[in-house]
Design a protein around this nucleic acid. Structure first.
Lengths: 224, 224
DNA sequence: CTGGATCCTCAACGATACTG
DNA sequence: CAGTATCGTTGAGGATCCAG
């Protein structure tokens, strides 16, 4: 209808008709972290025109990728969430995330970190999410005033948005946390230089740095 | 410069700034199949405005994702190809392709199949590209007037655009070949109903149907 | 003939204001 | 809070034209 079509019977073309629209990938990223209300989405997507967000959500709902839960009784707000079909986009979002992260060097002027962006980054960094069975560690990661958490237990890693109760280690950092995830900044140096501030057992930071990894690409041109 | 930024220090946001532009994903798909000339890209992307293609290629070149080889001596045409950084997008393109293909049912009115689209579909269907070591089979796949090939040998599958010499089996079909890849149409039925026409050993078609698979999603709403 | 550049029109996006 | 309304600006669509 309103959507632009490429006229090709091709999976990538169909995907491009959806994710190839401005803001859509970021809306899906935010929803992939968990259900969100309209105002939360606005807050997590600085600069998005409210009309654009409204029409994107409507399109995604029409396409069966997002569902809205109307305020009913106790809930007084509409909540948007991914449908099962929307959840299936996860691997594609992660692959794009990983590729984009490989090209990041330093933040551009004015670039910010949001709860969804740090959560998505940690999720990608967790890779297949497998760790040794005997690891049982809870991390809270704070970048600026946004927070996410990483829980390693029962042999798997779970990443989520927001704080967590009684973390074994709180990691506070700036965007340079990315250099740790990229393996560009080793754990002792990050601690020594104050690039990260820890609350809890500092020894657990080494495990964090060793386990979470988003390699950066060696193929990125010097000026990009 | 001309490119729109999202203002977030986030891998997905950086990726979205590039692949979130109209036509870019399809240009990258075509180039992922192999180097192409300007006119070949125009032919493979029906409906693309020539100015849009030119500016996309320039942007992608500036970003180190595409490189152009100027006509030198024997070559009389500019050729566009993915750089190593561009090749790294492969997994993300495949993941998007797979997701989009999962939502495809029947072609929409006027939708066509191009060489790059069928090649990309077969490459995604090949999955990790591993087959038994003793398989040594060459397929040529024709959909309408476009052709691709699949070669199984030395334990791996290689998919490419265009015809191949002395195929063991030529498979000619319409877009319904997708139903075979989706597992919706089994090999004997496809042959019996004439959905595919074979030249060569028909027994090899069963292997083709069993090995190449793009599952379609059960989560797609009835009307989409 | 290939590889674009140019021009115009119109739909989509961006910013802001406003309403149920 | 959750959007809709309005309006200026940008970029895509489509045709044509130009240079090597």
């Amino acid at each position: 209808m309103t959507n632009q079509h490429y006229g090709q019977f091709c999976g990538l073309a169909r995907a491009a008709e959806i994710v190839g629209q401005r803001w859509t990938l970021l809306i899906l990223r935010d929803l992939s972290v968990g259900p969100r209300r309209y105002s939360e989405l606005v807050a997590g997507l600085p600069g998005i025109p409210t009309g654009t967000l409204a029409s994107r959500l409507k399109e995604l709902e029409d396409q069966g990728i997002v569902e809205r839960t109307l305020p009913s009784g106790a809930e007084r707000s509409t909540v948007y969430a991914l449908t099962p079909r929307g959840e299936e986009l996860g691997p594609a979002l992660d692959a794009l995330s990983r590729w984009g992260a490989g090209g990041m060097r330093t933040p551009r002027a004015g670039e910010i970190v949001t709860t969804a962006s740090i959560t998505a980054a940690l999720r990608v960094a967790a890779g297949d999410g497998v760790v040794p069975d005997d690891w049982d560690t809870t991390y809270e990661v704070r970048v600026g005033d946004v927070t996410a958490h990483v829980i390693m237990s029962d042999g798997v890693i779970v990443v989520g948005a927001g704080p967590v109760e009684k973390p074994d280690l709180v990691i506070a950092a700036g965007p340079h946390i990315r250099d740790v995830l990229a393996g560009e900044l080793d754990a002792p140096t990050a601690i020594a230089t104050g690039a990260v501030q820890l609350e809890g057992d500092p020894a657990l930071f080494q495990r964090f740095a060793d386990t979470l990894r988003v390699p950066f690409s060696v193929n990125v041109p010097a000026v990009g």
